[in-house]
Design a protein around this nucleic acid. Structure first.
Length: 530
DNA sequence: TTGCAGTCAATATC
DNA sequence: GATATTGACTGCAA
């Protein structure tokens, strides 16, 4: 049905979301590959926004060795990775060829005069244009991601941040150009990278891109060029718009699109962003502390009490849980290796999951709710942590396939008597459980391993994804890939799990797990003390 | 249905 | 102006 719809009523490129473009890119690839028609017909593939991401890919891709994509072609120069899987190589090849074109003028699009929507027919497009790079890369990148050995997400982001700041390059530019993500996402990603093993394939993509970019010797220059070009385009636009007397409208997008639906009215359709008041957040946090997984009824109650939409409350809980979880990851990383960046990700690293602290706040911020925090924080930031620690994180336990309906449910609010909000006033922080381990296994592992620390201990943990203890047993010819990704660092620095703090946290974690388990079996008042 | 991962994009903050 | 935060959305899996 989708296909039919797509074939009969294709939307113009510019109207498609990244995801929506994928099918077209695939079709194009299919056409190119199988039929050998290299027409780029996909409706104006180079529409405005896209370009960004598009280009982005290009860069890295074009690099000879940097990306696997190039591998097939440039094998000579780079590490043609013996691995280059044939399969992909083919498509990749065509992709690269397409991509290879001289850097497409992103600016063009940016200039505001985006190539017309669906049009620039193939002819011209052929070579000149930026193909669905985004898609392209997306495809090949996916292959890369799939084959990629474990990467040190923390280390990568750290380096990226360094490079960006050192060269005065912005997140927006980097994100749009290299990662195909928006500024906010980039910021989030750089600030709170999740460990590799916790990422889905999709989630790993940005890290692979970053790694490729880091490996690209010309990465900075390219970005700088982009920056310059953007500036130029901006100035141009500015001038023209000024002269046109056109009150500047959102530059590119939308304009020529009138064809489709309503061009402007959209603004009005936008619904205002909901901004929760501090008190509301507090109330929600309190409710969360009591029941991280509130029942629908509780949610309703909360919504009415706070005068919010239930969907808002639901979203808040989702976001909060997920953000807290993420906080945990970084905490773990940082705590575990204060300087030894990188340690984190490796599966082994996760053992570190010991840091039950965290959270809380990142999510909503720093506002420290009271928070007698936990005692275990010895770190300076403890203050913040303290607060975080109070956040119960049953979620974690449930995290992975919470076997059954695990964790959450236990914590779940079945009965939720006494509305959430009214809960224990400013919840003196039940000191609740802090962040529990992300995954049972993790927990277990970490619990077990962390204390022990030694590699041995780590190995014992049969982490799901641990598949590759990075270096050594990377499943798929890591060797070449390693060179491809510059793996050294990737796997690099980890170690030091013998950090006293870590131990402490690990112990703490054990205790938490134990209590949670207990609580799960029998209704136990939520009164934690860690 | 529910929870989550990954993102976007509007705001806030720096 | 750049970066950080965060409510909402999409897609997927169980």
């Amino acid at each position: 049905g989708s296909v039919s719809d797509m074939l009969s009523r294709p939307k113009p490129w510019s109207k498609l979301t990244q995801k929506g473009r994928e099918p077209f890119i695939r079709m194009q690839l299919w056409l190119n590959g199988e039929l050998g028609q290299g027409v780029l017909p996909v409706q104006g593939q180079q529409q405005g926004p896209v370009l960004h991401s598009v280009t982005s890919l290009q860069d890295p891709l074009q690099q000879g060795c940097v990306s696997s994509e190039s591998t097939p072609k440039t094998s000579a120069s780079c590490s043609p990775a013996p691995e280059s899987p044939m399969s992909s190589s083919e498509s990749v090849k065509s992709l690269t060829e397409l991509v290879q074109q001289p850097c497409p003028p992103i600016e063009a699009s940016k200039d505001g005069k985006p190539p017309e929507p669906s049009d620039p027919p193939a002819s011209d497009s052929q070579p000149t244009t930026p193909l669905p790079l985004s898609g392209h890369s997306a495809l090949s990148i996916q292959e890369l991601v799939a084959m990629s050995p474990e990467l040190d997400t923390y280390g990568i982001t750290k380096r990226v941040k360094e490079v960006l700041t050192d060269n005065n390059l912005g997140q927006r530019l980097f994100g749009e150009t290299i990662l195909g993500l928006t500024q906010g996402s980039v910021s989030d990603l750089l600030a709170r990278p999740k460990p590799w093993h916790k990422l889905s394939l999709k989630g790993r993509e940005p890290f692979v891109r970053m790694q490729l970019w880091l490996n690209d010797p010309n990465n900075v220059e390219k970005l700088m060029d982009m920056k310059r070009m953007e500036k130029k385009a901006y100035m141009k636009r500015r001038h023209s718009s000024v002269s046109d007397s056109q009150p500047c409208e959102p530059p590119s997008v939308g304009t020529e699109y009138s064809q489709g639906a309503s061009p402007q009215p959209q603004h009005q359709l936008k619904k205002p962003r909901v901004v929760l008041a501090p008190e509301e957040k507090e109330a929600l946090k309190r409710a969360y502390q009591q029941k991280p997984y509130p029942s629908p009824k509780t949610i309703e109650d909360l919504a009415t009490q706070l005068n919010l939409k239930t969907s808002t409350v639901i979203n808040w809980f989702h976001n909060y849980r997920s953000r807290i979880r993420r906080e945990l990851f970084i905490e773990e990383i940082q705590a575990g290796s204060q300087g030894q960046a990188g340690a984190s990700d490796s599966p082994s690293a996760r053992s570190g999951r010991a840091a039950p602290s965290s959270e809380g706040d990142s999510c909503d911020g720093v506002e420290a709710t009271e928070g007698p925090g936990s005692a275990d924080t010895e770190e300076p930031k403890s203050q913040g942590e303290a607060e975080r620690e109070e956040v119960p994180r049953p979620a974690e336990q449930a995290e992975p396939p919470p076997s059954g309906t695990p964790g959450p449910d236990d914590a779940r609010d079945d009965d939720h008597e006494g509305g959430p909000v009214e809960g224990p006033g400013p919840l003196p922080s039940p000191a609740t459980a802090t962040a529990a381990p992300a995954a049972p296994e993790d927990a277990a592992t970490s619990a077990a391993a962390a204390p022990g620390e030694g590699p041995a201990a780590r190995s014992s943990a049969p982490p799901p994804s641990s598949s590759s203890s990075s270096s050594s047993s990377a499943p798929r010819r890591p060797s070449s890939l390693q060179s491809l990704f510059g793996l050294p660092e990737a796997a690099g620095a980890r170690d030091s799990r013998d950090n006293p703090l870590r131990k402490k946290k690990a112990a703490n974690l054990n205790s938490i797990i134990h209590r949670l388990e207990k609580a799960a079996s029998r209704e136990e008042p939520i009164e934690w003390e860690f």
